[in-house]
């Protein structure tokens, strides 16, 4: 077992033990915080596939987070008001079933990622950052003006959605759902990195010329990475909305994109557990510093600066050293 595997296991275990302890000590707020870490980490695992493996600096991933959120909000709000979403050409009704909501969230963010990616991946560097940002902002303003679903005020859902066999209103049970989904995404992401696709994508980041010279198209590799990445972040969006029982255009804002990227960099870009370490650090700081000062983002910014300047591998990189090459 490498040092990094050891650290990753410890992180996963801590994320599981903290809410279990909180459950034993009857501290539901801590469980909710841990749930938030798991969900944000999931969003980060998604972005990290584009950012870490593909080298695609997308500043528009809030688009997928928001689409996941609104998929949940729209389906659940219709279910709670017993109205159909549309009755033409076919009747589509809302639902309170999490698996169905997740499926819709993943498919909708996947299709959106395909469209955004197909256009934005024709550019690179700063242009790519700007175009993804622009698409994100487009959806943000669209959500603000979408009066049918709350416009600027967003949508409240009164009761958390359901999952067969579980009481999702119980914080520890909802946490369990998010934790299992996070683990599944991490497992998938780890396999992806070692797969032929991961090898080619990672090479396209380091030397696109090389990838073309052996007969593969960097564009197609990146597009698939962008779609997979958007789907996972979309799933996280649906869970985030379910945690808060609330969706609003803020989920689409560029600050959301920025926050996900910031905590990935804090945790360790391109490291499997970078998003987990980063999300945990982010939530912890938000609660310690957020209690001390309204302007805690300044301290977060300082920390980010330090990491970028002195600890490029983030938390994971600092603890585990340089990544071991696979064999």
């Amino acid at each position: 077992m490498t040092r990094e595997t050891l650290i990753n296991s410890a992180l996963a275990l801590a994320l599981l033990l903290v809410p279990l302890l909180a459950y034993a000590m009857d501290e539901p707020f801590i469980i909710t915080l841990a749930t938030k870490v798991a969900i944000l980490a999931l969003a980060g695992v998604g972005l990290n596939i584009a950012l870490g493996l593909g080298g695609l600096v997308s500043l528009g991933h809030a688009a997928f987070f928001g689409i996941g959120g609104y998929a949940m909000g729209i389906l659940a709000s219709h279910a709670q008001s017993y109205t159909a979403i549309t009755d033409w050409p076919v009747l589509i009704e809302g639902t309170k079933s999490m698996p169905v909501i997740w499926l819709v969230a993943v498919v909708a963010s996947g299709i959106t990622a395909l469209l955004i990616g197909a256009l934005s991946l024709r550019t690179s560097g700063v242009y790519f950052i700007m175009i993804t940002l622009a698409f994100g902002q487009m959806l943000y303003y669209f959500a603000i003006s979408w009066a049918a679903y709350g416009g600027e005020d967003g949508l409240s859902i009164y009761v958390r959605n359901s999952f067969p066999g579980l009481n999702t209103l119980d914080p520890i049970q909802f946490f369990a759902i998010t934790f299992v989904l996070l683990l599944a995404a991490l497992l998938f992401s780890a396999r992806l990195a070692r797969s032929p696709f991961g090898l080619a994508l990672n090479a396209a980041r380091q030397s696109p010329q090389r990838v073309e010279t052996i007969g593969l198209s960097p564009y197609r590799l990146r597009l698939l990475a962008f779609v997979i990445s958007g789907m996972i972040t979309g799933l996280a969006g649906a869970l985030f909305a379910d945690l808060n029982r609330f969706v609003s255009p803020t989920m689409f804002s560029w600050q959301t994109s920025g926050e996900i990227m910031v905590f990935i960099i804090l945790g360790g870009t391109a490291r499997l557990f970078g998003p987990v370490a980063g999300a945990a650090l982010f939530i912890i700081l938000e609660h310690i510093l957020g209690g001390l000062s309204e302007f805690w983002h300044i301290y977060l910014g300082l920390l980010l600066l330090l990491v970028v300047l002195f600890a490029k591998g983030g938390v994971i990189g600092t603890l585990a050293g340089r990544e071991k090459a696979h064999d």
């Binding site: 396999r191 992806l192 070692r194 797969s195 032929p196 696709f197 991961g198 090898l199 080619a200 090479a203 090389r210 990838v211 010279t213 052996i214 007969g215 593969l216 590799l221 698939l224 997979i228 090459a325 696979h326």
Partner: peptide, 21 residues
Amino acid sequence: QNAVLGALGAQGRPFHLFQSA
């Protein structure tokens, strides 16, 4: 890994997500 990348290009099927390269 660089050499396997070449072999992957020759094989022409880079969209395997689950097997190990």
